[in-house]
Design a protein around this nucleic acid. Structure first.
Lengths: 222, 222
DNA sequence: CGTATTCTTGACCGCTCTCAAAACCCGTGG
DNA sequence: CCACGGGTTTTGAGAGCGGTCAAGAATACG
């Protein structure tokens, strides 16, 4: 099974299509590979392709005027990125950087637009995905402006654990990156994690390992 | 010309359709009217219709666990709202409240989905709109977590003025609502506006009137 | 013109950032 | 297997931004 094929079956975007149709799409996919630390795209780049992560991990971030970094998304295998839209702004607002060895499948803008006109189900799947992202981002914005760092961190820990369906896990990010994700600094994260540990809400093992000891209490933190 | 007709021509969503098609759509639109202060929808409501603002003004906000309000969007005539998606979450996360006498056109979920399957251009227009919202929200989140209140307020003033293409304007929101939009408090807004005035960047007239005196300097505030 | 809401101003306090230095982790090569 | 070195994380001390609470001023509106 080719990796191009992988891409198409990885994302739910093309779920409704027949095997036949998927094969057609596979033929218009291009692949690229990136090393950790490598930049995949930058703000100002023209936006001319939909990108699907076939394997690896990509951090998507923006830079504020003051140079501060804001981590927007952490893309995993099967996630895709076409900036906010393949349609509106022709130029990117964000940066993408590989955190692991990463393979990316691309579909050209014009090819993808043709696909959408031909298979309305793709648009609807895409709308679904955008809707979800919008909801999540709305929640994040609300949290960022109304809750304390403590509360945001607690929420992140609980959600991350829940997403992996475990209570012990390794933070998928460096503290620096996690800090920009939550809108704080590595120092504050260290301190808050220690607080949580002192209160018996979590325990920390060496090397970014964290065990949730009392998820309910974490959720209640304000 | 009926108000139902107004709705359809108000939004760019249906631009590509023929006059014939638009008339068909008009027949499936329902209208509702709301008074200032009236709640149009609440978190927890099931999401079963696309809403188009025919006239008036609606504030869309979320409540954080600690009860704090976060203003997400201010919908004007021609804007629409179907939560983040008419597809994914079946239940609303946010509240909508009329700020002025407001008329709203609604299209039922199932009707709208049929329309989308029939006219792919609608989906594409919708994707465009979602993409724009996503971009704006990403920028807001970045600003919320990386910039000072001062900088966010300055940015808001400049953008609001630019949007109206004037240098003198009336704030479209109460300070309390503007505060929740920017993630701060009315007191802080008062103080910062006074600072700006002392520095000669703006001047304030009675009753929420503001004149931008030095937009460039405002933009440079960090 | 009176009342209710909104806005302003002041004093105070706490959270989180900054800067700096020490401790730790981990891959590398001796 | 252990010592080294770079990056990352932790810890500490200090400062400032912005929040809270409370009272007074201004505005809106019937």
């Amino acid at each position: 099974m080719s990796l191009e094929h992988e891409c198409i079956s990885l994302v739910p975007l093309f779920d409704q299509l027949t095997h036949e149709d998927k094969k057609t799409i596979e033929s218009i996919v291009h692949q690229h590979h990136y090393q950790p630390g490598e930049t995949i795209f930058s703000a100002g780049d023209s936006l001319d392709a939909l990108m699907i992560i076939a394997s690896g991990q990509v951090k998507v971030y923006q830079l504020a005027e003051n140079g501060k970094e804001q981590l927007l998304y952490l893309l995993q295998t099967g996630d895709f990125e076409g900036e906010s839209a393949l349609f509106s702004q022709a130029t990117r607002q964000s940066f993408g950087e590989a955190l692991l060895p990463t393979a990316v499948c691309q579909i050209e803008r014009s090819d993808f637009q043709k696909l959408m006109m031909q298979y309305p189900s793709i648009s609807i799947n895409l709308l679904n995905e955008f809707g979800n992202r919008l909801s999540k981002l709305e929640k994040r914005t609300t949290q960022a402006t109304t809750s304390s760092i403590e509360s945001r961190l607690a929420d992140y820990l609980v959600e991350t654990a829940a997403g992996m369906q475990v209570t012990t896990f390794k933070l998928p990010l460096k503290k620096k990156d996690l800090a920009t994700y939550l809108g704080t600094t590595p120092e504050t994260i260290s301190r808050k994690l220690k607080d949580f540990e002192d209160q018996g809400l979590i325990s920390q093992g060496g090397g970014k390992k964290i065990t949730i000891e009392d998820g309910d209490a974490l959720t209640l933190i304000n």
